[in-house]
Simulated assay, not measured.
Amino acid sequence: MLIDLDGFALAPREWDLVLTAVYYDRYGWHTREQYESFVHHYGFDLMNWPGYPVLADVRELTMTPWMGGKAAAESRAAEEFVRRVEPIGRTAAGATGPCSEAADGEGWMLPMTVQWSGLSG
């Protein structure tokens, strides 16, 4: 028997359920029917919980470094990584001052001086 414990956690049910909801709600990786069946059998729809949007944002943020690690080898991962990092750069710009584009014009220069260039090409 093989078991993938990557998506398994012993935590409040909201943290345990957020990944399934994010996969359906934000990525479309589950169909409506699949998600509704899951909710029916589990007995709780996390997306009706008032804290869902914040928890989903946190979960997506924690997935960003994982996606970045795949970016060099997979073009779809690179596109997704850029899609995730660009809003962080815009948020950082609004919070701490203007972010300048990288010298090559391909990415963002974040206040931390981490440059995400060349990933979208």
Results as ranks from 00 to 15, higher is better:
S117F: 04
T64K: 04
D104Y: 09
A102T: 15
M67W: 04
M67I: 15
V39I: 07
L10R: 12
Y35F: 05
W116R: 02
S100D: 11
H30R: 12
P98L: 14
E60R: 09
V82Y: 01
A78W: 04
A71M: 02
D6F: 03
E80W: 10
V82P: 00
A95H: 12
G121V: 06
R26V: 05
G7L: 06
G69R: 07
W108C: 03
D57E: 14
P53G: 06
A11S: 14
M109A: 11
W29P: 00
Q115E: 15
A71E: 05
A102D: 02
M1C: 12
E60P: 02
C99K: 00
R84H: 07
E36M: 12
T31I: 09
D4E: 12
F8V: 15
G118L: 03
P98M: 09
A56P: 02
Y27K: 10
G28F: 03
A93T: 06
E106R: 07
N48L: 13
Y52I: 05
D4T: 11
W15E: 11
A103W: 05
Y23I: 05
P87E: 02
H40S: 15
T91Y: 12
V22Q: 01
F81D: 01
T31N: 10
D16L: 08
C99I: 14
M47P: 00
D16P: 00
E106G: 03
L46C: 03
Y42L: 13
S37Q: 14
S75I: 09
I3C: 09
